[in-house]
């Protein structure tokens, strides 16, 4: 257990909210090779190492009472990217991961609706987006390729997982409401005959 390679570097990055993906060598390979050992080591410290189904790693977050301002900003920014991708008619993942993005070509301030949403999280201009992208780089979700160009990294899949979770929650609520309605409105005799 004490021989886990790159332990200090891995811990140092994960504890700051970083997501270790294939772009993070050699730490990622070390984790891939002995993920169970690392998970056991961190579990002893009360930390849960999550291995995402799309093959990247992060520490399971707490549920802090005070949510940092960054989280809503990241969420709104990411949902807008997805919403824009959906309107392009291409599969979302192909759109997000299949190209590099120019910051100046982002749709975030191109539509009033998006701009209004961003204002709610105190983002008013592209410089705010730049700061946010820097933060997203710090957690391993994007990678700058130039002063204005970046690409999304694999850990951005966490946003997709969250989207699916939202839909499933909404569907299960809908099903529960439907079942409740059904119990309140039992089938009539004619439908029972059917």
């Amino acid at each position: 257990m004490n021989q886990l390679p790159h332990l200090a570097e891995i811990f140092d990055r994960l504890k700051r909210g970083y997501h270790l993906g294939p772009d993070d060598e050699p730490e990622f390979s070390a984790l891939q090779a002995r993920s169970d050992d690392y998970a056991a080591y961190f579990a002893a410290l009360g930390l849960t190492l999550v291995r995402h189904e799309r093959e990247f790693y992060y520490f399971e977050p707490d549920n802090p009472e005070n949510v940092p301002d960054t989280l809503p900003r990241i969420a709104v920014f990411s949902y807008i990217v997805i919403d824009h991708a959906a309107n392009q008619g291409r599969p979302i993942e192909e759109y997000i991961f299949g190209q590099n993005f120019l910051m100046t070509a982002l749709p975030h301030f191109a539509l009033d609706r998006y701009a209004t949403l961003l204002r709610q999280v105190d983002m008013h201009e592209m410089s705010d987006v730049k700061i946010l992208l820097n933060r997203m780089e710090q957690i391993g979700w994007v990678k700058w390729l130039g002063p204005d160009e970046f690409r999304f990294l694999r850990p951005f899949h966490r946003v997709f997982s969250k989207c699916i979770e939202i839909v499933q929650a909404a569907n299960s609520q809908g099903n529960a409401a439907g079942a409740a309605n059904a119990s309140q409105n039992p089938p009539t005799s004619s439908s029972a005959k059917e």
Binding site: Y79, I82, A86, I92, L117, K162, C163, E165, V167, A170
Partner: peptide
């Protein structure tokens, strides 16, 4: 289907915020 779910989730989140 996956893309549609993802898009729907994002749209729901943004709509709720709006």
């Amino acid at each position: 289907r996956r893309s549609s779910f993802i898009a729907e989730g994002a749209a729901r989140a943004l709509e709720k915020l709006q």
